[in-house]
């Protein structure tokens, strides 16, 4: 069982996994990682199960001191992770020695990053999950965001040998633009809005306001009008649902959303595009495009094929003997992964 200590936590770093399952009917939000593609990839790259616990950071990554050898991977929005002040690549598993300091830095493109540790974070499971749900102070590390001097445990990985050096090909790394097109499936209450307003919703640009968090993103743009008021008889809210309260400005409901709500929902962002939402920040722009259920499921199939490819890459990488070297030539720092082939 290894351990690390937080030197600087960043504004919002929490322990997350795939979320709390099976308790929505009791009104328990699911919480869990916001950008599940980046989260799952980080775990796969260090040889973990996809659902092992890792750190999600927001805007600025944590700085941590390792108290044992480990292998890490940093994924998500583009930041500049450093190992003992030496830049290391993202989307790659990297060996880190006991006593070294990892600093993830500022997220320059996108909004959220992930750092996974071989073995996965060892925090107690609550409601079957290791995710942090901040509002009820449940789960994760003591039910709260990470803070300076916190000491976290990591489960012992089976074997660190050959774990480092697994990297994602460039074409599989998502892009993190400040304007995104999100695919939506209209409904379940699109019939409560004027058709002209649905057209407005699908043909306008909406800006993410500062009143946005893990619970939901409040947007600002052309007003979406209800035929007979915004209230419905309270019902369940799926992840990605776009609620429109009386003022006519949409809210995208995200990981920490409540299980139920009473505003009409004009559309729902498809599950694969929630990863894009997670990487948008206040001031960024969104356009919506309506797709069919079949298109959404095709997108999901494609994403799962990519995840399976990443797993295959990891298994291949494990067969190779690689070494990671850092060196400096003419004042430029380089980090290379060298494979022995002879």
């Amino acid at each position: 069982m290894t351990m690390f200590r937080i030197i600087n936590a960043g504004p919002l770093s929490t322990v997350q996994d795939l979320g709390i399952k099976g308790y929505l009917k009791y009104g328990m939000p699911s919480a869990g990682a916001m950008d599940l593609f980046s989260f799952r990839t980080a775990n796969i790259l260090v040889g973990n199960l996809e659902g092992d616990a890792a750190i999600e950071f927001t805007f600025q990554g944590p700085e941590i001191e390792l108290e044992a050898d480990t292998v890490i991977a940093v994924t998500g929005g583009r930041c500049n992770p450093c190992l003992d002040s030496f830049p290391i690549p993202m989307w790659q598993s990297v060996f880190a020695k006991k006593g070294s300091i990892i600093n993830c830095g500022i997220v320059g493109e996108g909004f959220r990053g992930y750092i996974a540790f071989a073995g996965g974070l060892d925090v107690p499971k609550v409601l079957g999950s290791r995710s942090t749900y901040l509002k009820a102070a449940v789960g994760g590390f003591k039910g709260r965001k990470l803070a300076v001097a916190d000491e976290l445990k990591v489960n012992s990985p089976h074997n660190l040998d050959n774990l480092a050096g697994c990297l994602l090909p460039k074409e599989l790394i998502p892009s993190f633009d400040t304007e995104q097109e999100l695919r939506v499936i209209l409904g379940p209450q699109d019939d409560l809005f004027f058709q002209s307003s649905i057209e407005v919703f699908l043909n306008s640009i909406y800006e993410i306001t500062p009143q946005s968090d893990r619970m939901g993103y409040r947007l600002k743009g052309p007003i979406i009008k209800h035929k007979n008021g915004a209230d419905i008889i309270t019902d369940g809210i799926p992840l990605g649902a776009i609620q429109v309260p009386g003022e006519g400005q949409p809210i995208i409901m995200l990981s920490d959303k409540q299980a139920t709500g009473g505003y009409a929902k004009v559309a729902t962002v498809i599950s694969t595009d929630l990863n894009k939402v997670a990487q948008l920040k206040p001031g960024d722009n969104i356009r919506f495009r309506s797709v069919t259920l079949e298109e959404a499921h095709k997108a999901l199939d494609r994403q799962e094929k990519v995840i399976n490819n990443i797993k295959a890459l990891f298994n291949e990488s494990r067969q190779r003997k690689v070494r990671q070297l850092k060196f400096r030539i003419a004042n430029e720092d380089y980090f290379v992964t060298v494979e022995e082939i002879g």
């Binding site: 399952k21 099976g22 929505l24 009917k25 008889i233 309270t234 019902d235 369940g236 809210i237 799926p238 299980a259 139920t260 259920l293 959404a296 499921h297 999901l300 199939d301 799962e304």
Partner: peptide
């Protein structure tokens, strides 16, 4: 079928489309 959320007059049912089609 993953989980259900009963409400006043509706039931929300979550499913895994990789296992069962809509």
């Amino acid at each position: 079928i993953e989980e259900v959320v009963p409400a006043y007059r509706s039931l929300l049912i979550f499913y895994n489309p990789l296992i069962i089609s809509g």
